[in-house]
């Protein structure tokens, strides 16, 4: 077996475990830390898929900025009330998700996807090619994204402000 296949298996087992921990742990802080682990593992998968720039951005933006925001809000609110658990609802939700996973997997593995990847050139996934694509084909979405982020900043300030 190829070394990359073994690495993929190890990472996917760890990824599924940490995702399950995000959903099933009771303490919110533990959930957040499991999510950080999952995001790091996804970043490793990105690097394996010749997307080093996206892996770096994943660690910086997701595991860095967004998770710090989550942890800050958790510590700010300090929710102490224990979460009520309903067995029936958990069983129903897990069953629905299992059905979803099975149908998605069947659907995705049935497509006529190329068996062999296109041979990656030296520069594939480098910041240079990413920026070239971003600033030629995707200029308009890029500019709209900046407006979206401005709206998010203003909205967050207005929403979280204490009313006088």
């Amino acid at each position: 077996m190829d070394a990359s296949v073994i690495l993929f298996y190890v990472i996917s087992v760890l990824l599924v475990l940490s995702s399950l921990m995000v959903v099933f742990l009771r303490n919110v802080i533990h959930c957040a830390l499991a999510l950080v682990a999952a995001l790091f593992l996804i970043a490793i998968l990105f690097v394996m898929l010749h997307a080093p720039m996206m892996g770096v951005l994943q660690v910086l933006v997701y595991a860095g900025a967004i998770m710090v925001l989550f942890l800050f809000v958790i510590m700010f609110l300090n929710p102490t009330a224990p979460e009520p658990r309903r067995k029936l609802w958990w069983g129903f939700g897990s069953l629905a998700a299992l059905l979803l996973a099975a149908s998605l997997a069947a659907l995705l593995s049935n497509g006529e996807a190329p068996a062999d990847p296109v041979a990656a050139t030296e520069t594939f996934g480098s910041p240079e090619t990413l920026a070239k694509s971003l600033f030629t084909d995707f200029v308009l979405p890029f500019e709209i994204t900046s407006v979206l982020l401005l709206v998010a900043i203003i909205g967050a300030v207005v929403l979280a402000k204490r009313e006088p």
């Binding site: 959903v23 609802w89 129903f92 979803l100 996973a101």
Partner: peptide, 18 residues
């Protein structure tokens, strides 16, 4: 697909907004 389904479980059954 598996990771997405695990996320769906979380959205459906957890009773904590965060």
């Amino acid at each position: 697909a598996v990771i997405f389904a695990i996320g769906v479980i979380g959205v459906l059954v957890r009773r904590n907004l965060i």
